[in-house]
Lab assay of single mutants.
Amino acid sequence: TFYNFIMGFQNDNTPFGILAEHVSEDKAFPRLEERHQVIRAYVMSNYTDHQLIETTNRAISLYMANL
């Protein structure tokens, strides 16, 4: 899942690491979701930090390219 992918960046001092920290603390994050459209919609609806949203979009693109 995307959640498992992004958790691989925990403790990294990178934008993906920052995203992983936010996702791990977000109890409502769709952890079992595999459809990138649902993940993107969730982030757009629940996150207000523009940098975090952009990082999510980049992470989703990388995740999709590696499926």
Rank of each mutant, 00 (worst) to 15 (best):
T1I: 05
T1D: 05
T1W: 05
T1E: 03
F2L: 05
F2P: 00
F2R: 00
F2E: 00
F2V: 03
Y3D: 00
Y3E: 00
Y3K: 00
Y3M: 01
N4T: 11
N4W: 11
N4E: 14
N4C: 13
F5W: 12
F5L: 01
F5K: 00
F5A: 00
I6V: 07
I6A: 01
M7E: 02
M7H: 02
G8A: 11
G8W: 08
G8P: 02
G8M: 13
G8H: 12
F9R: 01
F9G: 00
F9I: 03
F9M: 05
F9D: 00
F9S: 01
F9Q: 01
Q10A: 12
Q10N: 08
Q10Y: 15
Q10S: 10
N11R: 08
N11S: 08
N11V: 05
N11F: 11
N11G: 15
D12F: 11
D12H: 12
D12C: 14
D12R: 14
N13P: 12
N13W: 06
N13E: 10
N13R: 09
T14N: 07
T14P: 02
T14Y: 03
T14D: 06
T14I: 03
T14S: 14
T14E: 03
T14H: 06
T14L: 02
P15Y: 08
P15W: 09
P15L: 12
P15T: 07
F16C: 06
F16P: 01
F16N: 01
F16T: 01
F16Y: 07
G17Q: 06
G17D: 02
G17C: 04
G17T: 04
G17E: 03
G17F: 04
G17S: 08
I18G: 05
I18L: 12
I18H: 10
I18A: 12
I18M: 11
I18E: 10
I18T: 10
L19R: 00
L19S: 01
L19W: 02
L19V: 05
L19Y: 02
A20W: 08
A20N: 01
E21C: 11
E21F: 13
E21R: 15
E21K: 15
H22Y: 14
H22P: 03
H22A: 11
H22E: 04
V23L: 10
V23Y: 05
V23M: 09
V23H: 04
V23F: 12
S24V: 07
S24A: 13
S24G: 09
S24N: 12
E25I: 11
E25M: 14
E25L: 15
E25W: 10
E25S: 13
E25Q: 15
D26W: 02
D26M: 05
D26L: 05
D26S: 04
D26N: 03
K27A: 12
K27V: 11
K27H: 10
K27F: 08
K27Q: 10
A28C: 13
A28S: 14
A28I: 05
F29P: 02
F29Y: 04
F29K: 00
F29H: 05
P30M: 04
P30G: 01
P30I: 06
P30K: 02
P30Q: 02
P30C: 03
R31F: 06
R31Y: 06
R31D: 02
R31A: 05
L32G: 12
E33L: 03
E33N: 04
E33C: 06
E33F: 04
E33Y: 02
E34L: 13
E34Q: 14
E34F: 15
E34A: 14
E34Y: 15
E34C: 14
R35F: 06
R35W: 05
R35C: 13
R35M: 06
H36S: 13
H36V: 15
H36I: 15
Q37V: 08
Q37D: 14
Q37G: 09
Q37Y: 12
Q37T: 11
Q37E: 15
V38Q: 08
V38C: 12
V38A: 11
V38Y: 09
V38M: 10
V38S: 08
I39Q: 00
I39T: 01
I39W: 03
I39S: 00
I39L: 05
I39K: 01
I39H: 01
R40K: 10
R40N: 05
R40V: 13
R40D: 03
R40T: 08
R40C: 12
R40A: 09
R40Y: 11
A41H: 11
A41N: 12
A41I: 08
A41M: 10
A41F: 09
A41R: 10
Y42L: 03
Y42S: 02
Y42P: 00
V43G: 01
V43M: 10
V43T: 04
V43W: 03
V43D: 00
M44S: 09
M44N: 10
M44R: 07
M44Y: 11
M44T: 10
M44F: 09
S45I: 09
S45W: 06
S45E: 14
S45C: 10
N46E: 06
N46S: 09
N46G: 04
N46L: 06
N46C: 07
Y47I: 04
Y47S: 01
Y47Q: 02
Y47R: 01
T48F: 10
T48W: 07
T48K: 12
T48S: 11
D49T: 06
D49N: 08
D49I: 06
H50E: 14
H50D: 11
H50I: 13
H50W: 13
H50Q: 13
H50R: 12
Q51H: 11
Q51M: 13
Q51D: 13
Q51E: 13
Q51T: 13
L52Q: 02
L52M: 07
L52T: 03
I53V: 09
I53H: 06
I53G: 03
I53N: 03
E54I: 09
E54F: 06
E54W: 06
E54S: 08
E54G: 05
E54A: 09
E54P: 02
T55C: 05
T55H: 04
T55A: 11
T55E: 05
T55L: 12
T55K: 01
T56M: 15
T56N: 03
T56R: 02
T56H: 02
T56V: 14
T56S: 09
N57Y: 12
N57I: 14
N57F: 14
N57H: 12
R58C: 11
R58V: 08
R58P: 02
A59Q: 02
A59D: 01
A59C: 04
A59L: 11
I60H: 01
I60F: 05
I60A: 02
I60T: 01
I60R: 00
I60N: 00
I60C: 04
S61L: 14
S61F: 12
S61R: 13
S61T: 12
S61Y: 11
S61C: 14
S61D: 15
S61M: 14
L62N: 04
L62P: 00
L62D: 05
L62W: 08
L62I: 10
L62Y: 06
L62G: 03
Y63R: 01
Y63V: 02
Y63P: 00
Y63W: 15
M64V: 13
M64I: 14
M64L: 15
M64G: 04
A65L: 13
A65H: 10
A65S: 11
A65D: 11
N66P: 06
N66A: 15
N66I: 15
L67A: 11
L67T: 11
L67E: 09
L67D: 08
